[in-house]
Design a protein around this nucleic acid. Structure first.
Lengths: 146, 146
DNA sequence: TGAATATGAAACAAGTATAGTTACATTTTA
DNA sequence: TAAAATGTAACTATACTTGTTTCATATTCA
């Protein structure tokens, strides 16, 4: 029932693009930060491209940049670009339609599951990429203690 | 990772137990409504048993009953009993710790993902099994039209 | 007591998704 | 034209879920 790690990697990629906004980054250089294969990065960049979150250029000196300001990208934008499925799936095979319970459970659950997923996405929608980058910079600094 | 339908099936099972509260149900009869194998049902019942949501008895005339009132069982109780993992996973392998972004992304994401998951579970916690059964009964009746 | 009926658990197969890798065609720039 | 980059296909390994068979164990009742 879990999502994939694509979402986490996608946020990582976009945070990296934001902190290096002066240049286009290649999939290889991104892969070095994520610690994985460049093709894995390119697969995720393909989704982010299709969603209009990044802009990629071919060729020598090519690479990827953010397509819009980090203030205008929410984590939910990234989530929807990278994950396919309902996070709370219904039955694998259809319940027995000759049973009253089997007939009625799925429409009821479908509504509830949609509401639950919407609540999760609302939290993501309230967090921008810019905020994430700011929190990462705070994380990098030593904490003041009392 | 493929998604698990255990949660949906577990709600189905418990709704069936509630609507047949006068008798203990065998895994075979439950399986007939869910349209699957009795062993699949017993695996899920094992989790529900461990969580204290149902009570199972061996032997002829055995079977499973709700361990407490349907008003006192929330969908989040069922969710936590049946699903293991974080719903929004972090990176599959640890990012590059020599990169500032690689070092700081995971603690930041971990907090955000926890908040998002908590919002989802809050929706589930606000819905009792009794409400689900009521909605299923409403679903079974023909709708009045205007 | 012994047959019948349950559960619990182990073992296995099939299906599906992810993550990682290699390889190669294509595009762009110098 | 060479170099550097993307996009994509194909393959492997891994992991999880679902479904299935099998069998030991517990309980009830004739």
């Amino acid at each position: 029932m879990s999502a994939s790690s694509r979402f986490a990697v996608a946020v990582h990629i976009l945070a990296l693009l934001e902190t290096n906004a002066n240049q286009a980054l290649s999939s290889s250089s991104i892969a070095a930060s994520v610690n994985t294969n460049p093709v894995v990065i390119r697969r995720i960049l393909g989704r982010l491209n299709k969603a209009g979150l990044v802009h990629t250029e071919y060729g020598a000196d090519g690479g990827t940049r953010l397509a819009r300001s980090a203030h205008e990208i929410t984590l939910n934008d990234i989530y929807r670009a990278t994950e396919n499925c309902r996070i709370l799936p219904l039955h694998a095979s259809s319940p027995n339609q000759d049973c009253r319970c089997g007939r009625t459970i799925q429409p009821v659950l479908s509504t509830i599951f949609s509401n639950a997923e919407a609540a999760m996405q609302q939290v993501l929608a309230n967090k921008s990429l810019a905020e994430v980058v700011r929190e990462m910079q705070a994380e990098a600094k030593p904490q003041a203690c009392s």
